[in-house]
Nucleic acid binder design. Structure first.
Length: 610
RNA sequence: GGUCUCUUAGCUCAGCUGGAUAGAGCAACGGUUUUCUAAACCGUAGGUCGAAGGUUCGAGUCCUUCAGGGACUACCA
């Protein structure tokens, strides 16, 4: 607890008592007093009053009728009367059937507003006050460029890390690059056979796209060979296993694991091309990592763990030397952990990586942002870690997200039905440019500034579009319908921010935002805006609990919408009453701050003008 | 076959641990600009929450069954 008193002072805001908690405490007390019960505040649930009724918070009394032995209206009224005596925050109440709607005094909201406006990072928890968390995301294969599915992964991972930080966690991020395995051998083989020494320089192709091209070429030859074998009477299944080009790829993988100089040389070269390409895409997406792991490094450690598992009799050998684990008692199947030829499979290296991650970061909680097609894989991984008695086993958490689908179904790299990440980014930026020019509000700005703005808006639209959908749900992307810039979108929210900034630019830096409570008359719209602002800290908590950036998206949109209604109906700069003007300036400032802060959690920038 | 998951307005999605008459955006239709940025605001229309049971004061939300979609169930990653 050393140093805590100082922090208490500096971070006083972090310990602000939420009105909801005060109400719960008061309600529990009243119930106990009236009915001789023994409720504690956490037993009580209150909710925001529906906008159709007057009030701020609602307490539903139906569950307590047994105790009161009165009808709902009488019960609610009785509790309400007592609450008025016990709480200094409640102005009045209204009873509708079994619903006790409580209205909080304006002075409470006004005091809150003034205080919040002075905070540097309203809504954020004290940094590094919570347990450390490791977030792995992105985790690309090195045989093809990133597509829309990867974009969702990257944005999710980045946002989840930010949200956890906002909740006080120390967060580390890492990227596990799947740089070895049969897939990269396919690209290598095709390039060695058909590439004629082509490089990113000679082809003018981004490195990851060049390698991806050969992945497709491999698949074309593979399919052709399968066709020919089927002609000779083999079944499709047999043909897939016996196609010469596939056998050659498998042989290449074996050579690679034996450290064959030529193969390793090509492998290194082609991976470098891919990394150079990825770096550009990551830069555009605005993601970065504390540490990269490479499967080519971790799979060996994985093999050691396989040995450990064998010696602990967690794993067993089959006759051909392959190593398995039997998880049928856990409702899973038997699972291969090492091939008969001694080469490792996906889970082999994941076991090694998990070990390494724990050694490096010592996080008991470790989040893997990986698609839901791997749900089974992660169940197996966790079970194995538990059976091996690893201390980090229980902290493994698979943040499983749904696939991004096209109208015709799932994207398939090999069949070329993918929405390429680089293309999509370029499209979005171009649309932002066209829209901005059409509106003609940015004439006279410098080229550099405009270029940055187009990127900000285009990426804002893309990121918001992908993040607003609940992670676990699959989502649909229709390339024929471009992503909107109006309504519930990133640009609308960015625009709201820009409009606020336009007001604040007209305020002198020395102007005080202070006001006298008694001189303020809050309209319904203003009151609802304050109420919305008040919720921000809770929303950040909720987003972390659910590991869902969508929670932030929904909230920021509602805030922006509420502000837009306010903006439309109320003057700020021309308000004659100085106190009312200051009050409104606080609303403006806090709304802008929250939009910037909330969007920051999503990795979305906000412009000063647009 | 087994396991998991999804189904809410024409389309894309919200709906916190069960609570009041199920909400947004887009698309459609109508209105708003001499006033801080109209990428905006306001209004109209649009729903038996996949179906049927059950649990209870109360179910879009929890349980069961069914239908339909998807994923996984590889010595692929």
């Amino acid at each position: 607890m050393q140093g805590r008193p100082l922090f208490l002072f500096i971070f006083a805001a972090y310990f602000r008592k939420m009105i909801q908690d005060l109400l719960k405490t008061a309600i529990a007390k009243v119930l106990n007093q009236l009915y001789g019960s023994a409720f504690v505040p956490t037993d009580i649930t209150i909710e925001n009053t529906s906008s159709d009724f007057e009030g701020d918070y609602t307490f539903v009394v139906f569950p307590y009728l047994r105790l009161s032995k009165k009808n709902p209206e009488q019960t609610a009224t009785q509790i309400g009367d007592e609450l008025l005596i016990h709480s200094t925050e409640i102005l009045k109440f209204e009873v509708v059937k079994g619903f006790l709607n409580l209205t909080i005094k304006d002075s409470f909201w006004l005091t809150f507003l003034k205080q919040a406006a002075t905070e540097k990072s309203f809504g954020m928890a004290m940094p590094n006050s919570e347990e450390p968390v490791l977030v792995e995301y992105s985790s690309p294969n090195t045989n093809k460029p990133l597509h829309l599915g990867h974009v969702r992964n990257n944005l999710l991972g980045y946002a989840v890390a930010q949200i956890l930080r906002a909740n006080g966690h120390k967060v580390f991020t890492c990227n596990l690059v799947n740089d070895r395995g049969i897939h990269i051998c396919k690209s290598m083989l095709a390039w060695m056979r058909y590439g004629n020494g082509e490089t990113p320089e000679t082809s003018k192709l981004k490195g990851d796209h060049l390698v991806g091209k050969y992945y497709v070429i491999f698949d074309q030859h593979y399919k052709k060979e399968i066709g020919e074998l089927v002609q000779t009477g083999l079944t499709e299944e047999e043909a897939k296993k016996k196609a010469p080009i596939m056998l050659a790829a498998q042989e290449m993988l074996l050579k690679w694991e034996q450290n064959d100089a030529e193969i390793v040389g090509v492998w290194k070269m082609m991976n470098e091309w891919v990394y150079a390409g990825f770096a550009i895409t990551y830069e555009n997406l605005g993601v970065q990592f504390d540490k990269y792991y490479y499967e080519s490094n971790t799979y060996l450690l994985g093999k050691e763990i396989v040995q450990e598992g064998l010696s602990k009799s967690v794993f067993y050998n089959k006759d051909d030397g392959s190593v398995w684990i039997d998880l049928s008692e856990e409702g899973l199947d038997q699972k291969l952990v090492l091939r008969g030829d001694g080469t490792s499979v996906y889970i082999t290296q994941d076991l090694g990586t998990a070990e390494l991650k724990y050694e490096d970061f010592n996080c008991n909680r470790s989040i893997y942002v990986v698609g839901n097609e791997q749900d089974y894989h992660f169940k197996v991984l966790q079970k194995i870690a538990q059976k091996l008695g690893k201390s980090y086993a229980d902290g493994i958490y698979h943040l499983s997200y749904g696939m991004v689908e096209l109208p015709e179904g799932k994207m398939k790299s090999r069949e070329g039905t993918v929405v390429d990440a680089d293309d999509l980014i370029a499209d979005m930026v171009l649309t932002a440019e066209e829209t901005t020019k059409a509106l003609g509000k940015m004439e006279g700005e410098s080229e550099d500034h405009l270029k940055k703005l187009y990127h900000t808006i285009g990426m804002g639209a893309l990121k918001y579009f992908l993040l607003k959908v609940e992670p676990k749900k699959k989502m649909l992307f229709n390339p024929a319908e471009s992503i909107d810039f109006q309504g519930n979108t990133g640009p609308f929210i960015q625009y709201t921010h820009a409009r606020i900034k336009s007001i604040l630019r007209n305020v002198s830096a020395t102007e005080s935002f202070n006001f006298t409570d008694e001189k303020i008359v809050m309209s319904v719209i203003e009151k609802e805006l304050v109420f919305k602002i008040y919720q921000y800290p809770l929303v950040i908590k909720e987003a972390a609990k659910e590991l869902s950036p969508g929670v932030i998206c929904n909230y920021i949109f509602e805030l922006a919408k509420q502000y837009s209604a306010f903006y439309h109906d109320h003057q700020v700069l021309n308000e004659a009453n100085a106190d009312q003007r200051s009050f409104r300036l606080n609303l403006c400032k806090l709304t802008a701050d929250i939009i910037q802060s909330g969007f920051g959690l999503l990795g979305i920038e906000v412009p000063e003008k647009m």
